[in-house]
Design a binder for these strands. Structure first.
Length: 656
DNA sequence: CGTAACGTCTCT
DNA sequence: AGAGACGTTACG
C-alpha cells in the first residue's frame, strides 16, 4: 500500500476571514455571484465570489495533529521556534497534518510553503523524495481540473478518502437518496449511472485500497507513520546525507507537478532552516497581487495566476490577481476566472482573474553564461560581453537576435534590455505581443495610438506591477477604462492624450481612490496613482473641473500636459495655481499649447508657482505680446523665485 | 439546521 | 483544457 495508505484524510481548507478578499462583500457581477440565488441565479455552482477568493486559506478549526491528536497550540508558544513546533502543518504531498514538534525526524528537510498558512512538504515526504506529483499511491492520481496549478494549492490531493468513500460506499447511498427523489432530473440520474460505472472500475486499481476510513484504519496509518519516521530518522543518522538533495528530486522525476513550481514556484517555498527570503530574490516582485497579488492566480485559472505572481513577486502586487499576484497576481492568474479561489500568495493584490495563460517573466540573468558553438567549443565572448552588445540594439534587432539560437534567445530576454517597449501605432496588438510584454516586464510601455482593447489592457496591467511609464495616447476610453480596475503604486508617467471619448467624468472615475466597488482589486487611500509625477491629458474634452480632480488626486505632479484642452480657461489656471493647490508648488513643467481660451490673465498666475520652469503657451491665440511684456517686467512676488523668460514663440521658461 | 463554498468529477 | 455541476465539509 502504498503511501497512499499513509495519506491523511483530506481536510478541506477554509477561509481565513481576515484577508482583504474575505472581508469584502460579493461583487454581484462575477460569474459565480450571478449564479447565486441571492443574485437571482440558480445556485448550482456554489462557488465564492471571484473577488472574495481567500488569499490565505487556513486549516479548519477541527484540524488536529495526526500524531498527538491535539489542535494547533501555537498560541501558547513563547518564541517563534516553539510556535512553529506547536502549530499544525499540513503536507502538500501526503496531506498529513501534524505538529512539527511531534515529528521526531529532523525538520530541516521540510520545505515550508510561505504562501499558504500551515502548509509544508513534510520531512518524511522530502526525505523520501516525493513530490506533489509523485503518485503516493501508485495509482497515479491526477487532477483533471487543474494540472500543475493545482499543486499550488490543492492541499487535499489525496483522492481522498472522502471521495473514495464516496465512491465506494456513499456513492450508493447517495444515489439511493437521490433516486427516490423523484424529480431529480434525468440528467442526474444518468450521471448517477455513470458514476456507478466509474466507481466500479476505479476500485479495481490494484494498489488502491478500499477507502473506508474507519478508526482502525486511521490508527494503522498513524502507527505506520511513526514507524516510518523512526526508520528514516535512523537512516538519516547513519548516512547523514545532505539535505540539499531534496531539491533535485523533483527534477529527477519526470513529473514536474508541483515542483514545477520550480523556477518560479520555488519561490514559494523555503527551507525551514532559512528565512523565507530565499524566494524573494528571484523575482522582483511583483506582485502585487496583493500578495497575492501579485505576482500573481491562473490563467487558466486562478492558480496560474498565482504562478505568475510568484514570478513577478515583488513587482508589485497587483494581482490578485494576485494577481499573481496576485497579484496575484494573481498570484496567482485565471482566465476565466478561476474556479478555485484559493490562491495562495498573499503579497499581491488579488489578481484579476481573467487570464488563461500563464506568462512567466524570464529570470533576471538568463543562463547559460557561454555560447556553445557547433564546433563543440564555446564562443570566446561570454554572456556579459554579448549583453553589452545587445544593449545597443533596438527592439527589432533584439527580436532578430532572439531567432538566432536558443542561447541568444535567452540572453535577449534579459529584462535589462527591455526596460522600454514601444508598440505605438501598431495596427493591432496581438496575444503574443501581450505575453511578450509581460515576459519582459518593461519599466516603460508605449501603446499609444494602438487599438488595444479593454480586455487586453486589463490583462496586461495586472501583470506589470513594476511599470513606471505607461503611454496610452490615442487609445479608446473603453480600453483606458481598464485602468480603473487596478492601482499603480509605481506609475510615475501616464499619457492619456487624445484618448478617444474620454470625458471629465471618466477622469474622475480613473483618479478617484478605489472604493470597495467590485471593479477594484486594490485599494490605496492615496488613490490609484500615488506616485504619478507626469500626466498628459492633452487634447481631451475636459475643462476646469478636471483640474480640480488633478489637485485632489494627483497632488505630486511635476509635469502636466494640458495642451489642446480647448475648454480650459483662465479660471482653470487660477485653480491650478491657487494657494490651496498642491500643484502650485510641485509643478515644474506645464504645457498649455493650443489652449485657445487662455488670456493674458493667466500669465500672472504662473508667477505663483515657484518651481515652474517651463510653460508652453504656443498657439494660445488670445495671449498678447503686451501680456508677456508685463510678465517679464514684473519682478516675482517672492525673492527666491527667478523671473520668467520668454523663449521662442510664447514659451515661458526660467533658468534652471 | 442552514448557508457558504471547497474539491472533484463530468461534460463539452 | 475549460466550464459547469454537485456532493461534501466547515461553521455559525
Amino acid at each position: 500500500m502504498s503511501a497512499k495508505g499513509l495519506g491523511a484524510a483530506r481536510r478541506r481548507r477554509t477561509r481565513c476571514r481576515k484577508c482583504e478578499a474575505c472581508v469584502r462583500s460579493e461583487c454581484g457581477e462575477c460569474h459565480f455571484c450571478k449564479d447565486m440565488k441571492k443574485f437571482g441565479g440558480p445556485g448550482r455552482m456554489k462557488q465564492s465570489c471571484l473577488k472574495r477568493q481567500c488569499t490565505a486559506p487556513v486549516l479548519p478549526h477541527t484540524a488536529v495533529c495526526l500524531l498527538c491528536g491535539d489542535a494547533g497550540k501555537e498560541d501558547t508558544a513563547q518564541d517563534e521556534d516553539q510556535k512553529f513546533n506547536l502549530s499544525l502543518m499540513e503536507c502538500t504531498i501526503c496531506n498529513e497534518i501534524v505538529h512539527p514538534g511531534c515529528i521526531k525526524m529532523g525538520k530541516a528537510e521540510a520545505v515550508i510553503n510561505t504562501e499558504i498558512p500551515n502548509c509544508w512538504e513534510c520531512p518524511r515526504c522530502k526525505r523520501e523524495g516525493r513530490t506533489c506529483k509523485d503518485p503516493l499511491d501508485g495509482s497515479g492520481k491526477k487532477r483533471p481540473d487543474n494540472g500543475e496549478d493545482a499543486v499550488r494549492w490543492k492541499l487535499t490531493d489525496d483522492p481522498a478518502p472522502g471521495k473514495k468513500k464516496t465512491d465506494e460506499n456513499q456513492g450508493h447511498k447517495r444515489k439511493k437518496e437521490k433516486e427516490p427523489v423523484q424529480d431529480v432530473g434525468k440528467k442526474k440520474q444518468v450521471k448517477a449511472e455513470k458514476d456507478k460505472k466509474i466507481k466500479k472500475v476505479k476500485p479495481q486499481t490494484p494498489t488502491e485500497p478500499t477507502p473506508v476510513l474507519d478508526r482502525s484504519h486511521q490508527r494503522e496509518k498513524i502507527e505506520r507513520f511513526k514507524q516510518m519516521c523512526q526508520m528514516l530518522e535512523r537512516a538519516r543518522s547513519t548516512t547523514s546525507s545532505s539535505s540539499s538533495d531534496s531539491d533535485s528530486d523533483s527534477d529527477s522525476k519526470g513529473s514536474r507537478g508541483s515542483s514545477d513550481t520550480g523556477e518560479g514556484g520555488e519561490g514559494r517555498t523555503s527551507r525551514v532552516s532559512f528565512s523565507t527570503s530565499s524566494d524573494e530574490d528571484d523575482d522582483k516582485g511583483t506582485s502585487t497581487d496583493g500578495q497575492n497579488g501579485t505576482r500573481n492566480g491562473k490563467q487558466k485559472s486562478p492558480r496560474s495566476n498565482c504562478r505568475e505572481k510568484e514570478n513577478r513577486r515583488g513587482v508589485g502586487a497587483a494581482v490578485k490577481k494576485g494577481t499573481c499576484s496576485r497579484n496575484a497576481v494573481q498570484p496567482v492568474s485565471r482566465s476565466q476566472l478561476l474556479k478555485r479561489p484559493l490562491v495562495p500568495s498573499p503579497p499581491k493584490p488579488p489578481p484579476l482573474q481573467l487570464e488563461r495563460h500563464v506568462v512567466r517573466p524570464p529570470p533576471h540573468s538568463p543562463e547559460p553564461d557561454s555560447l556553445p558553438l557547433d564546433s563543440g567549443t564555446d564562443h570566446v565572448m561570454q554572456r556579459g560581453v554579448w549583453l553589452s552588445v545587445f544593449r545597443h540594439l533596438g527592439q527589432k534587432e533584439l527580436c532578430v537576435c532572439m531567432r538566432v539560437c536558443r542561447t541568444w534567445n535567452r540572453w535577449c530576454c534579459d529584462r535589462r534590455l527591455w526596460t522600454s517597449i514601444d508598440l505605438s501605432r501598431r495596427k493591432s496588438i496581438t496575444p503574443p505581443m501581450l505575453s511578450g510584454i509581460v515576459r519582459r516586464q518593461p519599466i516603460r510601455l508605449d501603446l499609444s495610438w494602438t487599438n488595444i482593447s479593454e480586455k487586453q489592457l486589463t490583462w496586461l496591467i495586472h501583470r506589470l506591477q513594476g511599470l513606471k511609464e505607461l503611454l496610452l495616447a490615442g487609445c479608446t476610453w473603453s480600453a483606458v477604462s481598464s485602468l480603473c480596475t487596478a492601482s499603480f503604486p509605481c506609475l510615475s508617467l501616464l499619457d492619456l492624450g487624445w484618448v478617444q471619448g474620454m470625458k471629465t467624468s471618466h477622469l474622475r472615475e480613473l483618479l478617484s481612490p478605489p472604493s470597495n466597488d467590485c471593479k477594484t482589486v486594490v485599494s490605496d487611500p492615496r488613490g490609484r496613482l500615488p506616485s504619478l509625477s507626469e500626466l498628459r491629458v492633452c487634447g481631451l474634452d475636459m475643462g476646469d473641473a478636471a483640474l480640480r480632480l488633478l489637485l485632489r488626486h494627483t497632488p505630486r505632479l511635476n509635469r502636466l500636459d494640458l495642451s489642446h484642452c480647448v475648454q480650459l480657461s483662465d479660471h482653470g489656471i487660477h485653480i491650478l495655481t491657487a494657494v490651496t493647490s498642491p500643484l502650485r508648488d510641485s509643478l515644474t513643467h506645464l504645457n498649455l499649447t493650443g489652449c485657445q481660451r487662455l488670456t493674458d490673465q493667466s500669465l500672472a498666475f504662473f508667477k505663483r508657482c515657484p518651481h515652474l520652469q517651463l510653460v508652453d503657451l504656443r498657439s494660445c491665440r488670445l495671449l498678447t505680446s503686451e501680456g508677456f511684456q508685463r510678465l517679464l517686467q514684473d519682478p516675482p512676488s517672492e525673492p527666491n523665485v527667478k523671473p520668467f523668460q520668454c523663449a521662442e514663440d510664447q514659451v515661458l521658461s526660467r533658468e534652471t
